[in-house]
Structure formats: C-alpha cells, structure tokens
Design a protein around this nucleic acid. Structure first.
Length: 282
DNA sequence: CGGGGCTCCTGTGCGC
DNA sequence: TGCGCACAGGAGCCCC
C-alpha cells in the first residue's frame, strides 16, 4: 500500500532516469492504461527523454521532453522496479544509458539494467499520459502536502471544523490532505494519543497541534526507513523498506501496546481496519 | 455533506 | 488435500 513515504522513496530512486531516453516499450497489460489507445501511448513515449520525476500525494509524475506527463498511481500493489525486464511486468520501459562504463559502475542504474518495470499483482494501478498533470481530477482536487507551508495545525483546525466525520476519515481523504493512507493515519493518531473514531470537530487545539506534529513525524520516519513493506512494497531497486519494523500499531491488533502494554484493539472505520490503543489514545 | 456499501483485482490464509 | 470464502485497502462510484 504505497502511501506518501513509499512513493517518495521510489521517486528518489528513479531520479537516475532523468535525462535518459525511452528506447523501447512493452505493454503486457492494457488495463493499466485505462481507455487509452496503446498505439498512441507507444508513439507518444518512444524516443522521449525524461526531464523530471516528482511525487504529488501518492502519485508519481514523470515529465517528458515532449512536455507531456506520465502520471503513475500504484494504488494497492503497484511497484516500479529498475533492472532487467521482469516476467511480472505489466508495462516496461527500456532506457538508454549515457554514462561511461566504469568499474565499479558509476550509478546503481548502470549496474542493474536498463528497464523500468511496472509490476502490479492486483492491477489497480494506473498510468495516464496527459498534457497537464494538474488537470487530472484527483490531482486538481488534492489537498496540500504534509510538508508544505500550507500544512500546519491551523490548517487542520480549519478542515476539522468544516466536517462532521471521524478524524481518521478526514485524514485519509486525499482532497483534504495529500499522501496519508491507512498505515500512517493509524500511526499518527497513536502518536498523538487520539482515538481514530473521535469526531474531528471534538479535538482541542492542543490535540490538533500534537496531531499535526505527529503526522509529519511518522511520515518523515517512514521515509528515513525507506517505506513500509507490509504487503509487497519495494523501492525502485526492488528492495523492501524497513519502516514496517518500526510501526506502533498498524497490523498489531491483539498485541500489547508498546507504550503501556494494553491490548491493542481494532475497529472498522469506513470499512477499513483501524488499530489503536484504548488506553493511550483518548 | 457524509457514510455505507460495492467495485475494480489477485494472492494468501483460514475453517471445514 | 481442496474448496469456498474472507481479507488486504486506494479510490471512484452510487445510493440514501
């Protein structure tokens, strides 16, 4: 389940593709392209050079020399893996390598191969080639990045006051805040000592301040550990992250709380599993 | 506006 | 062993 830290890690890894040219494309699964025409997709991408790779929310955005954008969403099980052409690829791009062959190789990319593989077990992932990434509905309507100036506790207070629902539901709504999913929302609420089922409106200023800090902290920590491999997440080199080894509550229902040893409880909020400590979280 | 439920998928793990 | 089923959960959709 790639959320902000996982997509950020992949985006960092894929920077080796900047200024590389696409020299071959394999589309094994057209579902990833949605309604897009595979021939147009191929024609628009072949021979183009990658100008820029960046993240917005959970989306990865690739700017091409044609000034078009390839917008990639990994959804649940999507992976972007550099290396050889993989058997599990749904879509794969071959890239030119410009750097001189050195020993040891000058970049990990030169060492491990020339293909970027889009692997996606459950096929929820999407790839869209567009003129302007900001016109994609989900991106147009997306809330601020948690690390932007716009995101602070007063911003949270503002959106909490405007909605009637539970604090967990608000935090994972991409239209309100970008990049938080079911793992890190549980982590942030644990760290802030707030029960996920609390109505957002009911939070005090003190709690909102702590929550804003907690959100940034858990996301930063997960980036530092290169993402959580709780399902099948891997980084751009196909390696697992280590952030899941340092989670407080996610996936740990029934186990003792790391802080007070109380048995962690799990409930469903909007159909999604949600773990919390009934003692530490108020 | 909000929440519940369904859908898209497929691998895994459980109970019988 | 093997079958059926629940579950994982991002996000869009419909409905009430």
């Amino acid at each position: 389940m790639p959320e902000l830290p996982e997509v950020e890690t992949i985006s960092n890894d894929l920077q080796v593709l900047v200024n590389k040219k696409i020299t071959d494309i394999k589309v094994y699964d057209t579902k990833i392209l949605g309604a897009a025409d595979i021939n147009i997709f191929n024609a628009e991408l072949l021979g183009k050079t990658v100008r820029r790779i960046f993240r917005r929310g959970k989306h990865l955005i690739v700017k091409l020399s044609s000034n078009k954008f390839l917008v990639i969403h990994l959804r649940m099980t999507g992976q972007l893996v550099l290396g050889k052409l993989l058997a599990g690829s749904r879509i794969a791009f071959r890239f030119s390598i410009f750097e001189k062959k050195t020993n040891p190789p000058s970049s990990p990319f030169a060492r491990i191969g020339q293909w970027l593989n889009f692997v996606d077990q459950r096929r929820f992932g999407t790839m869209d080639l567009v003129e302007d990434w900001q016109k994609i509905k989900a991106l147009k309507e997306m809330g601020p990045e948690p690390f932007s100036d716009e995101f602070d506790w007063t911003f949270l207070r503002k959106i909490f006051a405007k909605h009637k629902t539970k604090v967990k539901s608000l935090l994972i709504d991409q239209r309100l805040i970008a990049g938080i999913g079911n793992i890190y929302v549980q982590e942030a609420l644990f760290l802030a000592g707030i029960k996920p089922q609390r109505l957002a409106k009911s939070l005090s200023d003190k709690e909102i301040k702590k929550l804003a800090r907690s959100i940034k902290f858990v996301l930063k920590k997960a980036i530092r550990y290169r993402g959580s491999s709780v399902d099948n997440y891997v980084n751009g080199y196909g390696q697992k992250g280590e952030a899941h080894l340092h989670l407080y509550v996610y996936g740990q229902a029934g186990q003792p709380c790391s802080h007070c040893q109380t048995k962690l409880r799990d409930i469903k909020i909007s159909g999604r599993n949600t773990v919390y400590c009934p003692n530490c979280q108020k």
